[in-house]
Every structure is written in C-alpha cells, then in structure tokens.
Design a protein around this nucleic acid. Sequence first.
DNA 1: GTGCTTATGTGATCCATGTCGCAGAACGGC
DNA 2: GCCGTTCTGCGACATGGATCACATAAGCAC
Lengths: 261, 261
Amino acid sequence: MIEQCATDVASAPNGDWRPWSPHRRENNPLQPKNSEPFSCLSSVELFADLSPAEIEAIDQMAPARYFRNGEFVFSQSEPVTALFILKKGRVRIFRVTEEGKALTMAILEPGAVFGEMMLVGQRMYDNYAEAIEDAEICQLSSAEVEQFLLSDPRIATRIARHLGEQVARLEERLIDLALRPLQARVASTLVRLAESQRPSRFGYVTISLTHDQLAGLLGATRESTSKTMADLASRNLIRQGRGRIIIIDVDGLSILARKMA
Amino acid sequence: MIEQCATDVASAPNGDWRPWSPHRRENNPLQPKNSEPFSCLSSVELFADLSPAEIEAIDQMAPARYFRNGEFVFSQSEPVTALFILKKGRVRIFRVTEEGKALTMAILEPGAVFGEMMLVGQRMYDNYAEAIEDAEICQLSSAEVEQFLLSDPRIATRIARHLGEQVARLEERLIDLALRPLQARVASTLVRLAESQRPSRFGYVTISLTHDQLAGLLGATRESTSKTMADLASRNLIRQGRGRIIIIDVDGLSILARKMA
DNA sequence: GTGCTTATGTGATCCATGTCGCAGAACGGC
DNA sequence: GCCGTTCTGCGACATGGATCACATAAGCAC
C-alpha cells in the first residue's frame, strides 16, 4: 500500500525528463519504523496552543507516509491532500518553468509544515515537493483542515503568522535577487540557512547541500555558485566538503551579504 | 493636527536624500472631505464576513488620515499603527538597501489593506510606504487589531488567505526575476497590473505608471525598461502616453510573459 | 506664448553571469 | 582493490542589462 502510493507520486511532471531533480530511484520502499513513541504533531509550532488531547485527536487523522530520496511528495496532479508535516528527512519545494528551468523555493527541515497555501484557497500552481532525503511525512486532507484547523482561531492565527514569515523571507530574497550581486546572495543565503540549523558539536554549523542545490535556491548556475563558494572558502568564511558546507564565520558572511557591488 | 502628523511622517528615512522617491512636496495639507457617506471598511474584502453593525464598530476605531502625493505613510520609525486601509489614492510599498537602491514590493489601489505583516508578529523591517497620489487612509493600532481582529476566526482566516495570495504572487515574481529575461518580466508585470484594474470605458485597461515606477517594480533600470516598452509598443501590444500605459493585447503579452529566452 | 520640470528615447561602452566543455576528485558498490 | 556516478573546479567565450551621457518631448505654471 505504501509502495503503491509512493511510486504513484514519484512519477515526473513531464514524462520522465527531469534534469532539475536527482535521478536515484531505488525500488524498495521505506518501511515505517514500528510504533514511534512521538506524535507527528508535538513540537510543531503550528499546534503549540493545543492541549495534548487535542493534538492526539488531530494526530489520529494524520497518518505518516514514507518517501525515498528523490520521490515526489506532491505535484500539481495531487490536489487531495492539503497539509503536510515533515517528521523526518528533508524536502525541497520548487517550481519549474515550461523550459525546464527550476527554482527552489525552500528546503525544509523536520518539524516544518508545508502545503499551507492550498488550504488557504491558493492552488499550489506549479509547485513541486520532492524528498531530498528519505523522509517521513504526515498528511491532512483539505476537508479535515477546513473543519478542524481553520475554524480554530488559535491555529488560524498561527497559520497567518507562519505565512507572514514566509512573506518576509520572500521579500528578502526578492531584494537580493533584484539588486545584489551573486556573492552577496550566496552569503546571505548561507546565513539564512545557518540560522535554521542547530550548531552541531563544535560550534560550527554544517549545511548539507551540494553546490547544485544551493544554486537552485539562488537562481544562479552551478558553475558560478561553485566559483563564489571557492572564493568564500579562500577567505576562510566557510569550509567545504562534498555535499556539505561548514560555516566558519557567520559575521563575515553577514557583512558580505549586504554589500551591493 | 492632520498637518502635524502628515509632515511628521513625510520626513525621509536617511536625512533628506531620496533619489528613489518623488520630490514634490506641497505644504498645504489635504483637508478631509466633510462627512463621506461610505464607511472606510465596507467593500474591503477582509471584513466581508462581518455584519454591518460590526463593521460600524470597527469603523469607529479607524480614523482616516490624508496624505499628499509623495508623503510617507509609514517607515520603520513608526511602529504604532498596525493595519492600514487605503480608501483613496495609490500607495507604493518599497524597500531600500543601504546603498540607496529601491525595489517596489507593491503598488496598492483603493480598497487594499496593508501593514498586515506587522500585526502577524513580523516587523516591517525596511519597508516603506509612500503615497504616489493624494491618498486617504484608515488606520488601526496593533492593540485594536490584536483584540478585535486576530481573535475573530472569520477575520483571521481572511488574513491568512490574503497572506497566502501574497506568497503566491511573490513566488511568481521570484521565478520571473530568477529565470526570465527582461522582456518577459515586463510583459508578465503588465498583465498582473492589468488584472487588478477595472477596464475603463472602451475595453482597454490603462495603467498609470511611469517607466521609472515600472522599473522599480521590475528590479530593472529605467533605461532598459523604456527600451522594452518601446519594443512592445512597436508590436502593438501596448500604447504609451506620458505616465500611462494602455494595454492593447493582453493575450499577446501573456505569451511573451512565459517566453524564456 | 516662454520657460521649467519631469518623462521618454537612444547609443556607446562595460561587466557580471550564463553557457559550453572538460578534467579531476570524492564517494558508493562490489 | 576497481569502476561508475556524482560532485567540484576551471577556462574561453557569448550576452543581457547596467551605466553613463545625452537629446527630445510633453505637460505645467505663468
């Protein structure tokens, strides 16, 4: 059953041509870990105002599904489910133009809620969501959301707040893209990513992204991103590893981030 | 009293140097038209679910203020008021970088609500609002909003919906900026502007913007915007007048809008 | 009308990134 | 160990817009 659903959603938007997406596609589905003790919903900010009993009730409605690295969590073709809660793994939200170019809207970490725009009347248009690590995701249908969440002012307010944050972030990115050179955009993006990350063992924050994924987030090419990253590394602001970026000097990056030319 | 407030807010963010803003600054304040028969709040989508009595109640709290073309409605320095309702005139929301470059986030028409991000916990950061026509604007303080609006699920939902639309629009713009050439961006922006406009007398939509204002919205220079506009005009997609753009062929523009290169 | 101010047209550069084409390096599987 | 795949690093080159520097035109004040 899980396999059924998963491969279902994993099919590419346009046939099977997807230069903007990882190609790995193993065919052994992820099995649910048996009896996770933690609710899908605890530690999700959206439900912070609810009592344990209420959370439990909603939890019943939100079955987890499992996605392998590279599988699609949703695409336009899937308008049934409204709200997704990322329990484990990471998910990339992105859009694709007719010509096959992609821009990453967000890279989500565990605890993130997504798909909120659908439940607020918006279609997700050409937004796609794809697991970039094996992931575990809870889902609520639009009907359930409409009935149990939007009607509750505590949650509606949280949703509004969450959307407000998104607006702020998007405006920030728009500014960057419109009037800052690549180096500043890279720096600013790294800072933003670093903030949403717990600083691992030794004070340094590690970001697990390839240059390619970072480029998708920047609206730049992999090549120029690589060049800029090399430059930042040579200035000891970051250190590089294959698929990982270690932030050495957040303040230095922040300064670069607001440089214009 | 009105004069007092108005000149108060009209002061520029950094001293008086504002290349990114109109210079006109008459010093006779606008006088309120006596006894407008229409409430500030009717015909505002946000309050569509409320009864006339409730609207009336809120209306009492929302005094109108008058701003001259070029005056600032708010800047960072004014954190008191939370929600603005544009009754008459037009307002431009924009951000400025340290270097003095500006990007216009939105151009608002009568009936629009703005400042919603503040009331949702967001600071407006470096957002400014400036009247680009003589304007009449109602205001609610954050306290009032908190107390009467956010707690009401009907309104909270509307706010969420409104923010959701904004997110969608911003993502659209981000895509445009990231991966479409200027001509497509101009076309797409014109289409978007045309949609939020009532098609005047003879079917044609007229947009009242200078090339400069349009450029601010595009994240491009006035020069390249002018060139592109001339091109569009030569293809009979639009017609030009000083400070006004007449949309002749929306469909033609829409096609250009999705062209990549 | 005259004259001032603001909007638009245009052309000659320049420069940051995109594009294309490889080569080397790091990892994963066997 | 070896091999294939995925990442990263360059370099040569093309190009869309930005910049700068004006010329012209349209409207407003008088």
